[in-house]
């Protein structure tokens, strides 16, 4: 994910406020938060040992985490230019959907 090398043509074209870089780091922070929640979700799934519900919870947590990671990775790749395109509605809805689905899985396990 390294930016353009200093002195290259791409570096001269770079946003002086480093907006794409800051947005990329915001995606990284958010992925990290999602990882923490997914790990807590896995721990939640194994409170009573390896039950069927626990294994399902583990699989769903992992799946949702991978989904979020895929969205974030695509966006981080897309931000690697001087003038990135607007975030697509689909990506925003997918990231939100993964967050909500993690919460719903957790709620079912807690109940």
């Amino acid at each position: 994910m390294g930016g353009p090398a200093p002195g290259s043509a791409a570096a001269a074209d770079r946003d002086p406020g480093l907006q794409p870089e800051r947005t990329r780091l915001a995606w990284r922070r958010t992925t990290l938060s999602c990882t923490v929640v997914a790990v807590l979700g896995v721990k939640l799934a194994f409170v009573d040992g390896a039950t069927a519900a626990g294994v399902t919870g583990l699989a769903l947590s992992a799946l949702l985490w991978i989904g979020f990671l895929a969205v974030a990775h695509r966006r981080i790749r897309a931000l690697d230019t001087a003038r990135p395109r607007v975030l697509s509605v689909r990506a925003a809805v997918l990231a939100t959907g993964c967050t909500i689905a993690l919460a719903v899985c957790g709620a079912v396990l807690i109940w």
């Binding site: 922070r29 958010t30 938060s33 999602c34 923490v36 929640v37 807590l40 979700g41 721990k43 939640l44 967050t99 993690l102 919460a103 957790g106 709620a107 807690i110």
Partner: peptide, 11 residues
């Protein structure tokens, strides 16, 4: 991230 923090707090 705020939403994820709330979800993590619930867990």
């Amino acid at each position: 991230r705020t939403a994820l923090a709330l979800v993590g707090g619930g867990f």
